[in-house]
Write a protein that binds this DNA or RNA. Structure first.
Length: 351
DNA sequence: AAAGCGTGGCG
DNA sequence: TCGCCAAGCTT
């Protein structure tokens, strides 16, 4: 086993030296890692593809090159920079974390996994990843890719969801004492480029001779997958309410779905029971312009889009809450819109 | 501890 | 088309 373990880390690192992707947050060789950039990239990459992250990362770093500058930004600015990327609580936690790093750590990230784990938005994976990649500590890093790679290398048959301890033991076993940051990134690169879930490119894999799943011809059966339940369908209504070339916008509640983001007034789909939106019930909904379908992780949304133009709005006896804002149409791109809201806006433009 | 939380791409 | 998937965290 020690021989196999040694071979794995050496083969993988030499593969990484040849094949590593040149990603904007990566430094190679003797270049020093910037913990701030490692942190931003790791938060953005949570459940998010590399190709989706790259443009957001570049814009983000351009706007806030250091933690000091980020900590002096406003939450809404950061939410706007996050607009469209998804999982928006990440932006809120990122800001809170930035303030802590500024005020308590003088803008220097703590180097230990244990300290990193205490920070908002940083869980087991991210703490280990920052520790390994930014500071080259020998942390055991486990993400979705690594779970799959390790399960195949050692023929671990239990579903990865219920096999954390065993996967940790084997990952610990293969993690080298040097070049830890390169090693964990190599494992993740291998998982995403070669040891893919459905069509692994075993013939190109530097670890093909060490892989127990491959030896037994079961690489496609590992890790074992559990089929998900079918997604429920929800229905809702969204309202583009016009007044003098402005549209009515409000900020969503600070907890739950699309928390704290700007939004058109909507109704009936998100379990928020926001009493500020009660006035929508008295609106005439005869003027529907379109339907929109939008997929969330855990439900499918069918949204009906209505236009309420000023001639109609004027004659209605509605009380619009104080914290709603009339936003000029042309400055709508300055808002922190989710992709759903952007979809509604585009539907309105085409409607 | 299981559920909630986004989005866009892909086969 | 539509289910699956992608460098998880929080409660």
């Amino acid at each position: 086993m020690p021989k196999k373990v040694n071979k794995i880390s050496r083969s993988l690192l030499s593969w990484y030296d040849r094949e590593a992707r040149d990603l904007p947050w990566r430094k190679f060789g003797k270049d020093k890692q910037d913990p701030y950039k490692v942190w931003i990239s790791e938060i953005m990459l949570q459940q998010t593809t590399v190709s989706a992250v790259i443009p957001y990362f570049n814009a983000f770093i351009k706007k806030w090159p250091t933690n000091k500058e980020l900590s002096q930004a406003s939450l809404s600015e950061i939410q706007r920079a996050w607009s469209g990327l998804g999982y928006y609580s990440r932006a809120r936690n990122l800001f809170e974390c930035s303030i802590i790093i500024n005020s308590r750590f003088n803008n220097n990230f703590p180097e230990s996994e244990k300290e990193l784990l205490k920070l908002p938005g940083i869980g087991a994976y991210t703490a280990a990843a920052i520790s390994a990649i930014a500071f080259n500590n020998r942390s055991v890093v486990i993400d979705g890719n690594i779970k799959r790679v390790i399960s195949r290398l050692f023929l671990l048959k239990k579903p990865i969801k219920s096999n954390y301890n065993e996967i940790w033991r084997f990952t610990n076993l293969v993690t080298p004492d040097i070049r830890v940051g390169d090693f964990v990134q190599a494992l993740m690169d291998l998982g995403s480029q070669i040891c893919k879930p459905s069509k692994p490119l075993c013939e190109s894999c530097p670890l093909i001779l060490e892989c127990d799943a491959r030896k037994n011809n079961v690489e496609l059966l590992i890790p074992k997958r559990i089929k998900k339940n079918t997604k429920p369908i929800r229905n809702g209504s969204a309202f583009v309410i016009k007044n003098n070339d402005c549209v009515l916008i409000y900020k969503r509640k600070t907890k739950g779905l699309l928390a704290g983001l700007d939004s058109f007034p909507t109704f009936g789909w998100d379990n928020q029971n926001d009493e500020r939106l009660n006035f929508l019930k008295s609106l005439n909904t005869n003027k529907k312009i379109s339907n929109i379908k939008h997929e969330f992780t855990h439900f499918t949304l069918n949204m009906e889009i209505y236009i309420i133009d000023e001639s109609i709005a004027k004659n209605l006896n509605i009380n619009i809450p104080d914290d709603f804002r009339w936003i000029p149409i042309e400055s709508i791109e300055n808002l922190s819109f989710s992709s759903l809201m952007m979809k509604i806006y585009k539907s309105y433009l085409n409607g």
